[in-house]
Computed example of a mutant assay.
Amino acid sequence: MKVSEKSNEITAIPELLKSLFIKGNIIRVDAMGCQQDIATCIVKAEGDYLLAVKNNQASLYQNMEDSFRFLKTADYDENIDIGHGRIETRKCTIITDLAHIENPDKWERLNVLIRMESERCDKATGNTEYATRYYIASKPANAAFYQKKYP
């Protein structure tokens, strides 16, 4: 969907969501769409959300880091993939304790905090890349679910 000149992605996403069949599905949105109104829109359409959290939501991002630093994890899953000339290890950790999230009730039906860590080693060069990504989600599920469905 093309965004008009006087608009942006944040205002266009709810309009796009209105055109989709959401009921029973999980809608994954990048960090630009990590907005409370978008989460509410998805839940009202009887779907679930998986929203990427980055520094554009600085307070939430810090809350996520604190949660994974200080709270007990609810579940963990690890996957190693060897192929395409590299070895990639992906780790998914989830937390269901929202104690470090400011005003968690502002996020419609927020149930899960997710941390995805990846380590990718190029077998030819030995160069290794590391990445950590955070997500919030409404669907209560274990780490293996998020690991397999949303790497």
Rank of each mutant, 00 (worst) to 15 (best):
residue 39 A to Y: 10
residue 19 S to N: 04
residue 45 A to I: 02
residue 150 Y to Q: 09
residue 137 A to P: 07
residue 24 G to A: 15
residue 26 I to K: 10
residue 94 I to R: 02
residue 46 E to Q: 11
residue 29 V to P: 03
residue 66 D to H: 12
residue 19 S to V: 07
residue 50 L to I: 06
residue 119 E to Y: 04
residue 149 K to R: 11
residue 22 I to K: 10
residue 26 I to W: 04
residue 6 K to M: 11
residue 62 Q to G: 01
residue 70 F to L: 15
residue 142 N to R: 06
residue 54 K to P: 06
residue 22 I to L: 05
residue 92 C to V: 15
residue 89 T to A: 08
residue 134 Y to E: 03
residue 100 H to C: 14
residue 83 G to M: 07
residue 61 Y to V: 03
residue 40 T to H: 14
residue 57 Q to N: 08
residue 6 K to I: 09
residue 70 F to V: 13
residue 122 D to E: 14
residue 80 I to C: 13
residue 56 N to C: 01
residue 35 Q to R: 15
residue 145 F to Q: 12
residue 123 K to D: 12
residue 44 K to R: 11
residue 21 F to W: 06
residue 140 P to H: 14
residue 137 A to Q: 07
residue 15 E to W: 05
residue 65 E to R: 15
residue 80 I to W: 03
residue 75 D to Y: 07
residue 39 A to N: 09
residue 18 K to M: 07
residue 59 S to H: 13
residue 110 L to T: 06
residue 3 V to W: 09
residue 15 E to K: 12
residue 84 H to M: 04
residue 5 E to R: 11
residue 93 T to M: 01
residue 103 N to H: 15
residue 5 E to F: 12
residue 1 M to G: 13
residue 52 A to K: 10
residue 141 A to Y: 05
residue 27 I to W: 02
residue 114 I to E: 04
residue 28 R to E: 04
residue 133 R to P: 01
residue 118 S to D: 04
residue 33 G to M: 03
residue 13 I to L: 15
residue 105 D to K: 15
residue 16 L to K: 05
residue 136 I to W: 08
residue 70 F to Y: 10
residue 101 I to K: 06
residue 82 I to S: 11
residue 13 I to Y: 10
residue 145 F to K: 11
residue 17 L to T: 02
residue 65 E to T: 08
residue 61 Y to D: 02
residue 86 R to V: 09
residue 67 S to H: 01
residue 107 W to R: 10
residue 16 L to G: 02
residue 50 L to F: 11
residue 82 I to F: 04
